[in-house]
């Protein structure tokens, strides 16, 4: 009996703390970029008293990011991340932009080269990394990678272009080697396991002859 009440008390305390925090979570100066636009029509069936869920704005203002100096007179000239990123294909983490999707759909068309003589190399070749223990097999697609990068960015500095020559493992990746040189720093974070570990083992077994 005493145990249950302790548990309940803690749960209540945490809930109360959470509610308090929810209040603190929205600083007044955080401009609401995502809420701009025409107000959507209220569904007729919903009671009017129910508040609509607040849209989450994942991008901080430059003045609030603990990095930019608010005293810098040139700061207002810089573009706010939310202004540029809110209109692109959404993702759950990182910049909250699915950069590959944004490129594919033509939402962005970043330049491929500055020197006219630079050769643009894109290759469509998938590599399966099967040594993944209990996790689904990793499918490395060359195409989206070469749409952003040149072969020389990875070969042979980060990855030797030879099957089985790269002892990739998650520890090294989390340390910033191999895939971790970009993923976790600028490309989508290492918490999005399923974007790499994407092929069920059974499917690979069916593809490989006995």
């Amino acid at each position: 009996m005493a145990r249950i009440s302790v548990g309940k008390l803690t749960a209540t305390a945490i809930l109360a703390g959470g509610l308090l925090l929810a209040g603190c979570d929205k600083p007044d100066d955080l401009k609401s970029f995502a809420t701009k636009g025409p107000p959507s029509a209220e569904p007729t069936s919903a009671p009017a008293s129910l508040p609509s869920p607040e849209p989450v704005i994942p991008w901080l203002l430059l003045t609030d990011d603990n990095l930019h100096d608010p005293e810098n007179p040139a700061l207002p000239l810089l573009q706010e991340p939310a202004e540029a990123l809110a209109v692109l294909a959404p993702a759950q983490e990182g910049n909250f932009v699915d950069w590959v999707a944004a490129l594919r759909s033509g939402e962005i068309s970043p330049r491929t080269n500055v020197y006219p003589e630079t050769k643009i190399r894109v290759i469509d070749l998938d590599i399966l990394m099967t040594d993944t223990a209990a996790m689904p097999v990793v499918r490395f697609p060359h195409r989206p990678h070469t749409e952003w990068l040149d072969c020389k960015n990875c070969h042979d500095k980060i990855f030797v272009a030879k099957r089985g020559a790269n002892p990739v493992n998650m520890f090294r990746i989390l340390q910033g080697d191999y895939c971790g040189q970009c993923h976790g720093a600028v490309s989508f974070p290492l918490t999005q396991c399923q974007r790499c570990h994407s092929v069920p083992r059974e499917q690979v077994l069916r593809m490989v002859p006995e």
Partner: peptide, 26 residues
């Protein structure tokens, strides 16, 4: 402060990290 997000809207990684020769290690 170099904002990657701002630049990758306009340029692919290869422009700076291949053509310009920026090493990929901060």
């Amino acid at each position: 402060i170099f904002p990657h997000w701002f630049h990758r809207i306009r340029f692919r990684c290869k422009v700076c990290h291949h053509e310009l020769g920026f090493e990929m290690r901060a």
